[in-house]
Design a protein around this nucleic acid. Structure first.
Lengths: 216, 216
DNA sequence: ACCTGAACACCGTTCAAGT
DNA sequence: ACCTGAACACCGTTCAAGT
């Protein structure tokens, strides 16, 4: 490679994200990264203490790509719905980098912009800080979970064509799993985008319903 | 270490899980694993094609620890609630192995036992295979997401005491994130078990509400 | 302050060989 | 079929040294 051009935190982080996009998170080595930047392997350590810090920085760059809605007049659940879609769009465009969001939360001002937009919308709608935090946690869990499911092809691995658990003791496995065998095709045939919205609506409708009818 | 005793898939998988519990997933090397089993590094390759297959097997052992409710008279949502709690309990007991569930779905008969119990309960309650699959997907996403959040201390990393994103360009960061700063303490102070139930109820109540009032 | 090359202590996996 | 040791092509990071 060899590019030259004075290293910066940002240029390194962007090169790291590009490398992850191409070769996966495990495929990002400090040596390959330095090579892509036209530097010696140890140069990166001037800007980052270790590989982990480089991955964190790549995650911040990724979060910066999320487009938050600027229309302040939208109702809060619609704002959140758009933000969730924007996050999913970034992950779809960077599937090999997706797991970064599982390990590294948004931390820089740039990376937190979409979070700020969502919080602001909720607070302006009169939803308490406590309730906003609770909803946010559930939505983060759902984002991370769906991202991993989609990126890993989680339900493609389910026992459909391969009706039984290959070994690990049970040679006659699958025999006592009639419901798994019945439902597995429905799981394998799910549309990612459609199911994402389905689950998102479960959470948002549940949240709205719970706010109207008390409890918690 | 050196233990002797003839290798089997199961003994290797159990030793792998023990090693992961002690040193984390990244800390599991084929060399250390063989050492713990009293064998030469390459012996494991007689039973597993590569390190990935060993991690998958360790995941199956972990799933096997989930205690599914045997009481068939329980209402379906209560059954699912108990299964979700049982999964969370196993993850809490094996925090360093938790991320295995993100990468390796249950596959063997033993590992799928709790899934079968949940599906069976839903189907007996007259919930369609399609709806069961949809609810399951949302619940898997939520399980994976909450497990990662809890295990990684996701919200501990939020900008509370450290009010701004350390570097990556923005030196004056945090200034335009009033809502993030307001809500961060509530996030850091959340109780994991309580919030897990809160989000779980959002999904289950949303599902029940949606089944009663049509749509989808 | 920034960047470098050599070295250390590891990796997963291939291979050729043994029983 | 099961197990082995040596070797290959990698790793992240420490160190001593340079500008």
């Amino acid at each position: 490679m060899a590019r030259r051009a004075a290293l910066t935190e940002r240029s390194i982080a962007e090169a790291a994200l590009a490398l992850i996009d191409a070769e996966g998170i495990d495929g990002l080595s400090m040596r390959k990264l330095a090579d892509a930047l036209g530097s010696a392997p140890m140069s990166v350590y001037t800007y980052f203490p270790d590989r982990n810090a480089v991955l964190d920085a790549a995650a911040q760059v990724l979060y910066g790509l999320v487009e938050a809605p600027t229309d302040e007049s939208l109702p809060p659940y619609e704002t959140v719905r758009r933000i969730m879609h924007a996050v999913r769009a970034v992950i779809s465009a960077h599937p090999k980098a997706a797991s970064l969001i599982t390990r590294y939360p948004p931390r820089t001002a740039d990376a937190l912009a979409f979070v700020e937009a969502g919080f602001r919308s909720f607070r302006r709608a009169g939803i308490s800080a406590q309730d906003t935090a609770r909803a946010y946690r559930a939505l983060v869990a759902y984002s991370i979970g769906t991202a991993e499911i989609e990126v890993n092809g989680y339900f493609q691995a389910y026992p459909v064509a391969t009706p039984a658990g290959a070994s690990l003791d049970e040679p006659t496995a699958g025999r006592h799993l009639p419901n798994v065998l019945e439902i597995a095709p429905a799981l394998a045939g799910q549309d990612d985008a459609q199911e994402f919205d389905y689950g998102l609506d479960l959470i948002l409708d549940g949240f709205a319903h719970q706010r109207d009818h008390g409890s918690a």
